[in-house]
C-alpha cells in the first residue's frame, strides 16, 4: 500500500483531492476531535449496508494497527491531520514531522493534487506481513498450496544483557539493483518443486527498536519446502542484496559491515 500523510491547515481538502485522482482501492483517514455517537456499551460499533457500504466507530484503535489493517486491503492510504507519523509527508506550514518531507508549502493552494497523486506511486510502500501473506494467497497456484512459511526480521535492542541499547537502524538501498536482485532470488527459489510464490519486502530509512525490518513469505505445497525456502530466502537476501545498515546505540553509531 502506498501511503501519504498531509499535515497543516487545509490538509483534509488536499487529502480528498489527491484521493480522487488515484486509481485502485483508496482509503482516506482523517482526524476527528470526538465521535458524537461513540458507543458506550461496546468497544467498537460497525454499520454495514446491503451493498457493502460501512461505517465504524470505536475507541480502542492505535494509528499503527489501523494502518496495518488497511495495508492488507487497500492500494493507497491518504491521511490528514496526524503530525507524528513516520510516513512520506506533505507539510502545509512549518510543522516538524518525523517522516520524509515530500513537499513543504506555505499554503494548501500551492499544492497540485494531480502531481502528488502521480508521485505517490513512486514512494516506498507501506507493507505488513499480513499484506504479503494475502498477496501470496492470491497466487494462481494457491489451490495446490498447503503451507505458508514466513520470516520477520526486526530491530534487536540488545544481543546480551549488558549490551548498549540499540535505538534505531538506518538502511540505505541501491535503488533498482536491490529490487532486481530480490526478484532474481525469488524467481530462482520459485523454480523449486512445490514452491509457488516467494515474496520479499525490506524497509529502508530509519527503523526503530522493536520495529519490523524485513519480511519473507513462501507459499508452498508442503511445510518442508516452505521452511527450507524461507530460510534460504532470508540468507540469500542478507548475502546478495545491496542494502546497508548503520546502527545507532545509546553510546555510538557505526556501519554494521565494519563490525561483522
Amino acid at each position: 500500500m502506498q501511503s501519504l500523510s498531509i499535515v497543516g491547515p487545509g490538509a483534509a481538502e488536499v487529502r480528498d483531492a489527491v484521493a480522487a485522482r488515484l486509481d485502485g482501492r483508496v482509503a482516506t483517514v482523517g482526524r476527528t476531535e470526538s465521535v458524537d455517537d461513540a458507543p458506550n456499551d461496546a468497544d467498537g460499533r460497525f454499520e454495514l449496508s446491503e451493498n457493502g457500504d460501512w461505517t465504524g466507530s470505536g475507541d480502542d484503535r492505535s494509528f499503527a494497527n489501523l494502518l496495518a489493517d488497511l495495508a492488507a486491503e487497500y492500494d493507497y492510504a491518504v491521511i490528514s491531520g496526524f503530525s507524528k507519523l513516520r510516513l512520506p509527508t506533505v507539510v502545509i506550514g512549518d510543522a516538524e514531522v518525523p517522516g520524509d518531507v515530500l513537499r513543504r508549502v506555505a499554503d494548501a493552494s500551492d499544492l497540485d493534487p494531480g502531481d502528488l497523486a502521480a508521485e505517490l506511486a513512486e514512494l516506498d510502500p507501506y507493507v505488513t506481513l499480513e499484506a504479503l501473506v494475502a498477496e501470496a494467497k492470491r497466487s494462481p497456484l494457491a489451490e495446490r498450496s498447503g503451507a505458508i512459511a514466513t520470516f520477520t526480521g526486526r530491530v534487536r535492542a540488545k544481543d546480551a544483557e549488558d549490551d548498549s541499547r540499540t535505538t534505531h537502524l538506518k538502511f540505505e538501498k541501491y535503488e533498482g539493483v536491490a529490487e532486481q536482485r530480490m526478484a532474481d532470488i525469488a524467481a530462482e527459489l520459485e523454480e523449486r518443486e512445490g514452491v509457488f510464490e516467494v515474496l520479499f519486502h525490506h524497509r529502508t530509512g530509519v527503523v526503530v527498536d522493536g520495529e519490523d525490518i524485513v519480511f519473507v513469505v513462501v507459499l508452498a505445497g508442503h511445510r518442508r519446502e516452505a521452511f527450507r525456502t524461507v530460510e534460504d530466502g532470508i540468507d540469500r537476501l542478507k548475502d546478495e542484496v545491496p542494502l546497508f545498515k548503520k546502527e545507532t546505540t545509546e553510546d555510538e553509531e557505526f556501519w554494521v559491515h565494519d563490525r561483522a
Binding site: 525490506h202 545491496p242 546497508f244 556501519w255 559491515h257
Partner: peptide, 10 residues
Amino acid sequence: LALFPPVSGG
C-alpha cells in the same frame, strides 16, 4: 558504475 561495502540487509 557503483562502489559499495559488504551488504548488511536484514
